[in-house]
Simulated scan of single mutants.
Amino acid sequence: METFDDYLDKLDNPEHRARMNEVLDWVQATFPELTPKIAWNQPMYTDHGTFIVGFSAAKKHWAVSPEPAGMAYILEDIKRAGHDHTKQLVRFPWAKPVDYALLEKMIAFNIADKAECATFWR
């Protein structure tokens, strides 16, 4: 995806770059109504100007952040799946398969929950 090319080019590890590209492409294909953008040097998706989900890359993992309300909604799923997490993000090891079911649940929740939201953050 062209919007994220510069970001992806900065990922040194080609396997990490490919994984992040795969995930970002999946989001766009699954939720074509979302707008891709770079903000705070990270790829994210918005809907009618409000934040839906953001991504970041680190040495040992990539992470996804759906805001605290989105995290609270999927917290039990995160724990059951054994994913490392904080109050604001879920970390996924590069070497493990992508948990697309979890991603879909968190993104769909934020789209529905923020349908009437008029601000970027909750």
Rank of each mutant, 00 (worst) to 15 (best):
K59P: 06
G49Q: 00
A57I: 05
H48K: 07
M71V: 09
H48E: 01
A57S: 15
W62V: 09
K79P: 08
Y73H: 10
M71I: 04
P68A: 09
F51Q: 03
P66D: 03
K60A: 15
V64Y: 14
Y45T: 00
K59I: 11
Y73L: 06
K60F: 13
P66A: 12
A72I: 04
S65N: 14
M44P: 00
E76Y: 05
Y73P: 02
V64M: 15
I52T: 05
G70H: 03
A63K: 10
Y73M: 11
A69N: 15
H48T: 01
K60P: 08
M44N: 02
Y73G: 01
G70D: 04
P43Y: 03
G54V: 05
A57F: 10
L75N: 13
Y73K: 10
M44K: 03
T46G: 00
V53P: 08
D47N: 02
P43I: 01
A57R: 11
A63Q: 14
E76W: 04
I74F: 04
R80F: 06
I78N: 11
E76D: 14
F51R: 01
A69L: 14
I78Y: 14
M71T: 07
D77V: 07
V64D: 10
D77P: 12
I74G: 03
S56P: 08
T46N: 00
W62F: 13
G70K: 03
F51G: 03
P68K: 11
L75S: 12
Y45N: 01
K59T: 12
S65I: 10
W62R: 07
G54W: 08
P66K: 08
K79A: 12
H61N: 15
G54M: 13
M71N: 08
W62A: 08
V64S: 12
V64Q: 14
Y73I: 02
H61I: 12
K59Y: 07
K79C: 09
A57Y: 06
A58P: 11
P43A: 01
W62D: 06
I78E: 15
G70S: 04
A69K: 14
K79Y: 09
Y45H: 00
Y45K: 00
A58I: 12
G49L: 02
E76A: 11
A57D: 08
R80H: 06
G49P: 02
M71F: 09
G54C: 06
A69D: 13
K59L: 05
F51P: 02
I74T: 05
P43D: 01
E67L: 05
V53G: 08
I74P: 02
G49W: 00
R80T: 08
G70T: 05
A63L: 09
W62S: 05
R80D: 08
H61G: 14
I78G: 14
E76M: 12
K79S: 07
I52V: 13
A63I: 09
K59N: 12
V64P: 11
H61W: 15
D77E: 15
A72D: 13
A72N: 11
P66G: 07
W62E: 08
S56H: 08
E67M: 04
Y45I: 02
P66R: 04
H61S: 15
G54E: 06
I78V: 15
